[in-house]
Design a protein around this nucleic acid. Sequence first.
DNA 1: GGCAATTTACTCGGATAAGGACTGTCCGAGTGTTCCAGG
DNA 2: CCTGGAACACTCGGACAGTCCTTATCCGAGTAAATTGCC
Lengths: 161, 161
Amino acid sequence: MILKSQVEWVLHCCALLAGLPENHYLSTKTLAEFHGVPKEYLSKALQNLSQAAIVETTLGPSGGYRLARPTSEITFLDIVEAVEGKSPTFVCNNIRENNPCRSADHCDTKPCSVARIMWDADEAWRSKLRSVTLASLVETLAKDVPADLWKKSSEWVMART
Amino acid sequence: MILKSQVEWVLHCCALLAGLPENHYLSTKTLAEFHGVPKEYLSKALQNLSQAAIVETTLGPSGGYRLARPTSEITFLDIVEAVEGKSPTFVCNNIRENNPCRSADHCDTKPCSVARIMWDADEAWRSKLRSVTLASLVETLAKDVPADLWKKSSEWVMART
DNA sequence: GGCAATTTACTCGGATAAGGACTGTCCGAGTGTTCCAGG
DNA sequence: CCTGGAACACTCGGACAGTCCTTATCCGAGTAAATTGCC
């Protein structure tokens, strides 16, 4: 069970978009070039973000993407779920129904105990992702990324906005 | 990102094995029949449990599997990791290295900030799974499963042990 | 210089394909139990 | 009745397809800015 590489891509893209001034857009091409990933496939992932109302898009030249909300109101969970989907990582196929001793008319009132535990763990994972916003990521990055690289990257991006 | 259906299978198998008296074994065939899943493919999953020292096996007729440890010392995480592997669900491909502004000799001292957050969430998921033992699952099941079904299932299993 | 038409650059969505992972099946080798035949 | 060998039932491991998901790639349609041409 491994997350799509698209998740990594869009997280980094959002980090880049978060550093952008108001009313500026970044094109898929620029985002793909900056991260060294295939432009057209990255586009698919960004479309998911767009559908989830995390980013906004403008058509035409000088078009592209920008964040649809303040960075403090976008969580990691929003982004991950936009790409991976909201359905739990554990699917219960109710194999207890195959129990040969089970009478045909038996109706399970409660969800399977095994599934409940797995879903709780899934919720713990999502809850952790929900607690981290884009704003806090930017804070962390500002501390971790060397100042000169930060400055050069910023200029590189602004030249293409 | 969805867990293998094998995970569901082996969790239910472990629940069944947990109800077994000491020194009794259940064959793959019996376990597969009880849960209505393909015998040979279930066998693959059980081999993983065997490698992880969660279950023990005996060859020959009247052979099969039994738990290798007390139910209180087997966690959901043990079982899930035996089937799914121990590697984190998020893999960091270090796409920040593709940053065109990055100097060639630049060496990243810290792991990627994005990856750290994702790994924290992964750990929260694993931590939750680690907190649930087979013993507590059996307790829950004893409460949730109707008494007559529990009794009949127990007899069905014991007839094949 | 001002306005309309054309070109251009971009997003969006669908179609398509390669590769890998998950799911499932089959078979041979090894092992321990059970059963049967011969003494 | 006792003992040795054959038959049997099971696990283990490898080999092998089928199907779905991931990872792309390509192209046409639509849109808005930029450019060009014309008055």
